[in-house]
Write a protein that binds this DNA or RNA. Structure first.
Length: 304
DNA sequence: GATATTTGACCCCG
DNA sequence: CGGGGTCAAATATC
């Protein structure tokens, strides 16, 4: 696992250039937000959404040093072997582009709920070898109308079936993540996403780092897998054990239950209480992605 | 009828 | 070759 310095370094840009680019991107998004709130015309809004996507990709590029999905896609296509290309031309029907997302930046969260404020459409489910719980595959509902490449995989945690292990891949370009977080927070019945500290051992490299009071969003990400450490008094977990948790206890029909485990609903409820030993953080995964996409990649969770 | 989910098949890639 | 990611027809739901 790399050092923190490495994690926050921006390989694509350095020094003042980096600052300028960051400023442009952040200001750009700010202006986009303001503009959108003033717009009524749907056509202009659509244009704005496209531009928003470009800004998001630029930010991804800035953070990762790699082209975002759209660029990467075209790059990859040019590298497709002749055999694959031949197949692609042949298979216009069932199959189409079966590009794998696994090589893209991804981040994993452990959550009590798979609700995150975004609209997902399930496109597949697989029994995973060696795993009791099937894995469900989701893509953004706006994949086609807004060319949003965001996908996610949801799988119940084997260790604690009341948790979902959610792997996000790709960036939402259908709307700005920050906007989404606002909607998310303002929504009356939103379902918070939790990152569990210590409730899961999916991660091989565990940083033993104490943190004081309420860490920054970035810090939270850096320390997703910190330890079983109990938070200090007046802890974040207290904070998150707010009435909003009521929203968590909802049936999740599309998720298949784990084989041989307890019932879905009882589990959801019991999980809320049984997680007292873990520090839970309410986060917005897509908000996180904007700033911390690198961190997850560098802390050793993933191979890419 | 539109939209979402299920599920078997297809195919990439290690 | 087999696991896993994706597609798309069939089916379900609204």
């Amino acid at each position: 696992m790399g050092s923190l310095e490495k994690e926050i370094s921006l390989p694509a840009a350095s020094g003042s250039l980096k600052l300028v680019t960051e400023e442009l991107i952040m200001k750009g998004q700010e202006m986009l937000n303001k503009l959108e709130s003033l717009l009524v015309d749907e056509g202009v809004k659509k244009l704005l959404a496209e531009f928003r996507g470009s800004v998001a990709r630029a930010r991804t590029f800035l953070e990762s040093g790699e082209p975002s999905e759209v660029c990467q896609d075209s790059d990859r296509r040019s590298e497709i072997s002749s055999r694959k290309r031949k197949l692609e031309t042949l298979k216009q029907g069932k199959g189409g582009s079966r590009r794998r997302m696994s090589s893209y930046p991804s981040r994993r969260v452990t959550s009590k709920t798979h609700e995150d404020g975004f609209s997902w459409r399930k496109y597949g489910q697989k029994e995973i070898f060696g795993s009791k719980c099937p894995r469900s595959y989701f893509r953004c509902t706006h994949k086609h109308d807004r060319n949003c490449q965001a996908t996610r995989q949801v799988q119940k945690s084997e260790e604690d079936p009341s948790f979902y292990v959610i792997t996000y891949m790709g960036e939402h370009t259908c709307r700005d993540p920050i906007d989404a977080s606002h909607e998310f927070l303002l929504a009356p019945n939103h379902s918070p996403c939790l990152i569990s500290f210590g409730a899961s051992d999916h991660c091989e490299n565990i940083q033993q780092q104490p943190f004081a009071s309420f860490p920054s969003l970035k810090q939270e990400l850096d320390e997703e897998v910190i330890s079983n450490m109990t938070p200090p008094g007046g802890s974040p977990s207290d904070f998150f054990m707010s009435s909003e948790f009521a929203a968590l206890d909802v049936p999740i029909p599309e998720m298949a239950p784990c084989k041989g485990t307890v019932s879905e609903h009882g589990d959801e409820a019991s999980g809320l209480h049984s997680s007292a030993t873990s520090l839970e953080m309410e986060i917005m995964p897509e908000l996180l992605s904007s700033y911390d996409i690198l961190n997850f990649d560098h802390v050793g969770f993933f191979e890419n």
